[in-house]
Nucleic acid binder design. Structure first.
Length: 470
RNA sequence: GACCCGUUCGUCUAAGGGUUAGGACACCGCCCUUUCACGGCGGUAAUACGGGUUCGAAUCCCGUACGGGUCGCCA
């Protein structure tokens, strides 16, 4: 029998490093919103750490004072918390490597720069500090992409000038500190990963080409670099980079749009990772259990909002009733429905199977809590085509008025008897009844809806409807 | 432009030399339902192209095309 262990793989199994405690990090730059790409990177890092019993840290890369804002920081942290991606070290959590804001870690960078200086590896250039890149081939052993080799001295000696549209001579040595003293991403990123003992750097594939620079810096500092895993990018449906404008690009919009954190995380996990079997719906706990870098594929994916909604709908169906009520409350309140109304639990039970987001819930059950029905023009026009509409409504009204047991069963029986009186079938009465009482041609199971609506309200609406059509 | 990475149904993906190339979303049809849905069943639909290697290639190699990324005193 073939054993998986015998397979040759450049991706090490976790058992290869029994003694190593995994430490991953998410290092956002607070210059905008929490983007789906960043959130997915955070998710993969979080899952990998949780899967392997390690630590997940949050480090804020705010070295660009011009662009970093407190508001952006708040939005990003809120987004991560909403998704349930808790961090063991970082803002609000503290940790052995405080501060976790790069803007507050100057002394540390100064110290590392001094090391490079002592080794003669940096020099000043018009006020900036440059790091001498080595003239040798550097090879990244990427956990997803395999081996990638580059010689920075060669590759960096030419630069593409976008305006001239051709290559020009360039200094291959990396600027690591600005003339104003501010440090540059590549340097602080490496220093902090080293200082904070990061073992696995999981990041977007857009950083693959930067990695040799980081390898050079780790080498110059005499350090062993972490393992790298570059994950494929998520593109928009047109196949280009996702922008804030694209539907589904910003995490806070999911929250506002009635998505569940677990649903969004599930869909993000699926874009670029597969459990290798047919399972597609995973709880957070299952993701932690199943996620691994070996299941990450290497090609970019296009974001499919429709499938994201479907995944969310599946999570909605699996929610316990009490939990659904809790999650739905803000969306009900926003639509003017009191979440504490005793009819809410049953109403949610009628609506839950037919929505994909919490935000769609009021649209299905709102009529139960409204003073009057809001009539949909197309629906009314559809039933008005029937010549016997007035008689039908009258028959329904009479049958309902005579019903003492105002339950779904009693209501069905009343419709049945009205149908018999008219010499037609119950099915033929359902649509007029639905439109007259709820205003819409579609919606949840009608009889239980009417039971919740109440006898008086139903009779009133039937009378109002007669006024509408005459 | 140079360098790097990639390419299986429209989309997300499975298949690690031998499968009628599997699943999911979307779409279409049928069934169920005296309403609306859910659900169930079925269907359309893919290995970018060209060369190798091999008895045999989606799978390994080379080339081409296409897509993405990088080439900042942004991260």
């Amino acid at each position: 029998m073939e054993s998986a262990i015998e397979r040759i793989d450049h991706r090490p199994a976790c058992a290869t490093f029994p003694a190593m405690t995994v430490r991953t990090r998410f290092a956002p730059s607070p210059t905008g919103f929490l983007h789906i790409g960043g959130a997915r990177t955070a998710l993969y890092n979080w899952l990998y750490a949780r899967r392997h019993g390690g630590s997940f840290l949050l480090r804020v890369e705010d070295t660009d004072a011009e662009r970093s804002t407190a508001e952006s920081m708040r939005v990003i942290l809120d987004g991560l918390r909403w998704l349930g991606l808790d961090w063991d070290e970082g803002p609000g959590a503290g940790g052995p490597h405080v501060p976790y804001f790069q803007s507050e870690r100057r002394e540390i960078y100064d110290r590392y720069l001094a090391k490079l200086d002592a080794a003669g590896l940096v020099y000043e250039d018009e006020g900036a500090i440059r790091f001498r890149v080595p003239d040798k081939i550097l090879t990244v052993s990427d956990l997803v992409c395999g081996e990638v080799s580059t010689n920075l001295k060669e590759a960096g000696s030419r630069r593409y000038d976008a305006e001239l549209k051709r290559e020009v001579e360039a200094n291959p040595d990396l600027v690591i500190r600005r003339p104003n003293g501010g440090y540059i991403f590549h340097f602080v990123n490496v220093v902090d990963d080293l200082e904070m003992g990061i073992t696995h750097v999981i990041r977007g594939e857009d950083h693959l080409s930067n990695t040799p620079k980081h390898l050079a810096l780790f080498g110059a500092l005499g350090a062993t670099p972490p393992r790298f895993a570059h994950i494929p990018l998520n593109l928009n449906p047109s196949g280009t980079k996702m922008s804030k404008r694209d539907q589904g690009a910003l995490i806070h919009e999911y929250q506002e749009g009635g998505f569940l954190p677990s649903g969004v995380a599930n869909y993000m996990a699926l874009l670029g990772w597969s459990a290798k079997d047919d399972q597609e719906i995973f709880s957070m706990a299952e993701l932690v259990e199943r996620f691994d870098l070996s299941g990450v594929n290497s090609s970019n994916s296009k974001f499919d909002y429709g499938k994201c909604r479907w995944v969310n709908g599946e999570h909605l169906k699996r929610l316990a009733p009490a939990e659904l009520a809790g999650q739905a409350a803000p969306f009900l309140a926003k639509a003017g429905i009191d979440p504490a109304d005793p009819r809410v639990p049953e109403a949610l039970g009628l609506a839950r199977e037919r929505v994909q987001t919490l935000a769609e819930l009021p649209g299905i059950i709102g009529t139960i809590f409204a003073d009057a029905a809001t009539y949909d023009e197309a629906a009314v026009a559809k039933v008005k085509e029937r010549a016997d509409l007035p008689q039908t409504i009258t028959a329904l009204e009479t049958a309902f008025a005579a019903t003492d047991e105002w339950t779904a069963e009693g209501i069905k029986a009343a419709v049945q008897s009205a149908a018999e009186g008219l010499g037609s079938k119950m099915g033929a009465l359902m649509l007029p009844c639905r439109v007259a009482t709820t205003g819409s041609a579609s919606g949840a199971d009608l009889a239980p809806m009417l039971a919740l609506l109440g006898k008086e309200a139903v009779l009133r609406r039937l009378r109002e409807f007669v006024g509408q059509i005459s």
